[in-house]
């Protein structure tokens, strides 16, 4: 079947899609956007997290056909091409929250969503919001640091305005 969708603001079309394919497969193997990761394909790790019509979901559990005419934002769409890395991306780098990096794209999409809805989260809020994203390398401490850092920086920016 054919699937047409918008990803990171661009219209995409994929042809000859098998009906059992996931949105994740279409992104990675058909649209050249492998940033969303394929760690478990059962909704238990969050590494494939994307925003679907502005809501974070596991793209491995969205059937490709369900993404027809919908709006998807992936990790590749977080950075503003004009201004470089998004604040959450920079914070993950600065805090040392990236090791192997396989969980990073999903965590970035989840963190970005958290900070949109809750700009100054408590540690418990951060832990709850990221409880669907497994990381095997960092022990999460530096991921917490990164989210705190991103929140603090956006607080400073907001204060300057």
């Amino acid at each position: 079947m054919r699937v047409t969708l918008t990803v990171n603001g661009r219209r995409h079309q994929a042809d000859d899609v098998w009906e059992g394919e996931s949105l994740l497969y279409v992104l990675r193997e058909r649209l050249g956007l492998p940033g969303s990761k394929n760690a478990c394909e059962q909704g238990e790790c969050g590494s494939c997290t994307v925003r679907l019509d502005d809501v974070p979901v596991c793209s491995c559990l969205v059937a490709a056909g369900q993404a027809q005419d919908r709006d998807v934002v992936t990790v590749e769409g977080l950075a503003d091409p004009g201004t470089g890395l998004a604040p959450v991306q920079q914070a993950f780098l600065d805090a040392g929250a990236v090791q192997c990096g396989f969980c990073t794209p999903g965590l970035l999409v989840a963190t970005d969503d958290l900070l949109r809805h809750c700009p100054q989260p408590t540690d418990a809020d951060i832990r709850e919001a990221l409880s669907g994203n497994l990381c095997r390398c960092t022990g999460y401490e530096k991921i917490l640091d990164a989210v705190r850092l991103a929140a603090a920086r956006s607080g400073e920016t907001a204060g300057e305005r």
């Binding site: 394929n38 992936t74 040392g96 990236v98 990073t104």
Partner: peptide
């Protein structure tokens, strides 16, 4: 010194090519 990873930017932008990303 706590130098940042040279592969860090590729990893946070989704461009870093893992084995399963080979094409």
């Amino acid at each position: 010194v706590s130098v940042a990873r040279p592969d860090g930017t590729l990893k946070v932008t989704g461009e870093f090519a893992y084995a399963s990303d080979m094409w």
